[in-house]
Write a protein that binds this DNA or RNA. Structure first.
Lengths: 131, 131
DNA sequence: ATTTATGCAAATCATTTGCACATAG
DNA sequence: CTATGTGCAAATGATTTGCATAAAT
């Protein structure tokens, strides 16, 4: 069976995610990691983020029309994307249980989950608009 | 001001969308259009789909981890993505009004809308699994 | 020793864009 | 005539992958 090995790169990625404690793109993780350890490659960061999210250790947030984000938490929650700057933020709202039950006709589909992405204007973009 | 012109290509794209009457990827639109008019380029299809969705004539559905879909309807609705084959289907469920009001702490965010993507197993993938 | 990981560069996939030419208004 | 549209090929951006080497178990 495939087992996982501990490497400096994996530690660095996890450390970066925990220090920020919010979702980061792979690019942001790479940048942060490289400030400490300059010799770590982009593909390795992508591979590690992929592996960790497959394992369920971190959350991969598929951002429509933008780079995916990774969150060191593993409890599901919803997100907002600012339509101005494209940043993604957490939403303070409990996950809706059994949302799937509201579907009238399932056509034989088996629903396993759902994801909500809100859109809006983030506080800082709002300020720079009125300014 | 910029105004729009009618071209054979635009007619062809709209015709393709209306004939299928369900969401298609740009690639699918291109394929269908090329059966009638072989000399229409990929970029033109993309440009037209972009233009039409900007105008609000059609719906652009951002599919996480997959090609965007376009729907000739302009009334919003939710979608399911089959985790097996990746196909996207409409969901028979009314759009939730005021979902944004359920957000506890908005941190100064202005919410303008939301989108829900369900995940599940489509009927045909389910069949081929048990087979 | 054997298997998993890494770094690099090249590949992929969906989509956009620059540019010269065509065409609708 | 003049602005908008088209076709092509090349560019983009995010992510993945093949391959030889390195490191963890």
């Amino acid at each position: 069976m495939a087992s996982f090995r501990n490497t400096i790169q994996k530690d660095a990625v996890l450390k970066a995610l925990h220090e920020e404690n919010r979702h980061m793109t792979a690019e942001q993780v790479l940048a942060k990691v490289q400030t400490q350890n300059p010799v770590i490659s982009r593909s390795t960061v992508f591979r590690i983020l992929h592996q960790l999210s497959e394992r369920g250790d971190i959350l991969r947030i598929r951002v429509p029309d933008g780079a995916d984000c990774f969150d060191c938490t593993n409890t599901p929650h919803y997100h907002v994307k600012c339509t101005d700057c494209g940043e993604v933020f957490d939403v303070d709202m409990p996950v809706i249980d059994n949302l799937e039950d509201k579907i009238a006709d399932t056509h034989g589909f088996i629903f396993t989950g759902h994801n909500i992405i809100f859109s809006g204007i983030c506080p800082s973009c709002r300020k720079s608009r009125t300014a």
